[in-house]
Amino acid sequence: MSMYTGVPTVKRTAVYVYQTPVRIWHWVNALAITVLAITGYLIGSPLPSLPGEASDHYLMGNIRFLHFAAGYVFLVGFLFRLYWAVVGNRYSRQLFTLPFWRRGFWSELVHELRWYAFQEPEPRKYVGHNPLAHLFMVVIITVGGLVMMVTGFALYSEQTGLGSWQDELFGWVIPAVGQSQDVRMWHHWGMWVIVVFVMLHVYTAIREDIMSRQSLISTMISGWRMFKDDRP
């Protein structure tokens, strides 16, 4: 008999998942995306004209400044997040890796979809992302984010000019896609994809927080995943 006889078996009901830098990144990124989407829409479809002298206003200039500033925050945040995937815990790597070849991933994905379609009595427990969330995060935030950054900085390079580092790094995108108007158009489509994703993300986070067997929203604040039951 071991020395632990008589001590109640400790059940794991909470796991530290999201480290502080990941949580800070999440909320900074959420703010950046909000600012980017609103200002981006207003760049495509500007507010009604202002009266008076042009020298009295700088509305479009300010909106564009906010867009570019938030774009830089998104880029720096993305690079930081990539760094943290290397040095952070195992869950910090989920954003950049997809277990594409693991069959279990796809069967669990189906299970999760069935849970959302009311075909399963309860969802499975996951310390990190559930397979459906995992897939969406990789496709929208990583792949989608990269597309938005590359097209965004390509458009930004048009004003920083030929020879600027933005032009050197991203200027090739414009002829590769077609012309400037095409890049604008796809960047604009990307905004709507992200808007729809954010709607789904917020809804599912709230719903899972209430209906699943684990905490969601508080986890992205405290970092701890709380499980509501001890069943596997």
Partner: peptide, 11 residues
Amino acid sequence: RPHFDAGQFVE
């Protein structure tokens, strides 16, 4: 361009 930056457009 100053009208663009100011937010003054032909509607």
